[in-house]
Amino acid sequence: MDRDELAGWLRLLLTPGIGNTTARRLMAAFGLPTDVFAQSPTRLREVVLPQQAQALQQVPPELETQLDSTLQWLATAGAAPRSLITLGDDRYPAALLAMEDPPLLLYALGRTDLWRPASSRNIAIVGSRNPTPQGEANARQFGKACAQAGLTVVSGLALGVDSAAHLGALEGAAEADDRLATIAVVGTGLDRVYPRRNLALAHRIAQHGLLLSEYPLGTPPLAANFPKRNRLIAGLAQGTLVVEAALQSGSLITARLASEQGKEVFAIPGSIHSAQARGCHALIRQGAKLVETIQDVLDELKLSSTPDSIAAHADAISASGPKDTENPLLTALGYDPVGLDALVARTGIATSQLQVQLLELELDNQVARLPGGLFQRIAHS
């Protein structure tokens, strides 16, 4: 793409009052952005409102700066390839074209050489930014199992469930260099990472997966951008798995968008005492498929997998259940958050001794200490 062509795309993107839907209508009528801007005001008013036609006559003041920074970003050599994918490009995902407002541009950082935009083997994994320890472990375990089954995990690079899902996918696809491990759809420009705590994770994703954004370089983490980008997470995936979510969680937006796009929605149930499980329970009541293992997802999506990966995940789920020979305190804990007084009543162990045992289990990463003086057992894969 030469400078003039890129300038046309960026100008259309930056023009006030011209959203994705209007831009698409303009290109359907006139062709490429450079052709759109070659039209007279009269011709433009045949397709858009008068104020929109007037806006198209004005060059956005930030265009030259954005053009220079984009060209410099594309030309900068780094550990991961950089590219710009425009609407109509062969690499543009067909699934996004079916949406009402597909992005004009997708900024891409990472393994575009492994990206198959027409692939249906993508699964979105989303959930709370503040999950319970068990929720975070579930996200990582399912991310790994999905990658081992040959699926690409799509998420949003947020803290909590998103990060755990990306990490699990990177672990599961560690030995498969010929396919994309995970896709992170972000709500900022690709020249910055938000949250900063995920900088190292973003670098790993760029090396073994792909980071995507519809926002121009330099775009800060604006609150309104994150719910909007959720439609792309849902759009890129054949189904969306919600691991943990409160009733007001943004993950439920992704699930709703997936449902509106005709995609499958899955949810992992949790404790009836956990606020972070209520969003998943609400989805299940609304028709989302209850998920216990990766096989539930594969069956619903009619996808195949290797027997070894399915068996490994089933064994991991089974192994997390109570055993006759396990610590009796773990059995007494169950998997719901529980307070110290309740544990004393269940076990008959003196409070001082119980606190010592809980500390030992906490240091061994078998029990997590929660706010409010609660404890929760952690199931590991």
Rank of each mutant, 00 (worst) to 15 (best):
D308S: 15
A94M: 08
A202R: 14
V193R: 07
S274W: 01
E360P: 08
M99C: 13
F142Q: 14
S320R: 14
Q207F: 05
L13D: 13
G373C: 01
T306W: 15
K144L: 03
H313Q: 03
K323W: 05
R377G: 05
Y107P: 11
P307G: 00
T22W: 10
V356P: 13
S304Y: 13
T112Q: 13
L44R: 04
I268M: 02
G218Y: 09
V161Q: 04
A124C: 00
A94S: 15
G135R: 12
Q238N: 07
D2W: 00
L333H: 04
A288H: 01
A77M: 15
A288C: 03
Y107S: 03
V47L: 09
L87H: 08
A108C: 13
A158T: 03
A147D: 10
G334E: 14
L333C: 06
S271W: 02
I205C: 07
A202K: 15
A267H: 00
L13S: 13
E292L: 12
Q54W: 06
Q261V: 00
P221E: 00
A246R: 15
G372S: 00
N225Q: 08
A176T: 15
P61K: 02
A108H: 09
L217G: 04
G372Q: 01
P103S: 02
G88T: 04
A28L: 06
V36E: 02
L74N: 02
A368P: 15
L370V: 08
T22L: 11
P133R: 11
A173Y: 13
L13N: 13
A98K: 12
I123Y: 09
L283T: 00
P216H: 02
L354F: 12
A98H: 10
Q366V: 11
S309Q: 04
L157T: 10
D35G: 10
L210V: 02
D178N: 15
L74D: 08
I284R: 08
L210G: 08
L232G: 02
Q54D: 15
T34M: 11
T34Q: 08
P227Y: 04
A95Q: 03
V193W: 13
A314C: 09
L105Y: 04
P117V: 00
S213E: 04
P195K: 01
G160W: 09
L6W: 01
S381A: 15
P50T: 15
D90Q: 02
R116M: 11
L74F: 12
Y215M: 00
L199P: 07
L201H: 14
A80C: 05
R197V: 10
A118I: 11
A98P: 07
Y335T: 12
A237E: 07
T347E: 07
T188Q: 09
R43K: 12
Q248M: 11
S305D: 03
T42M: 14
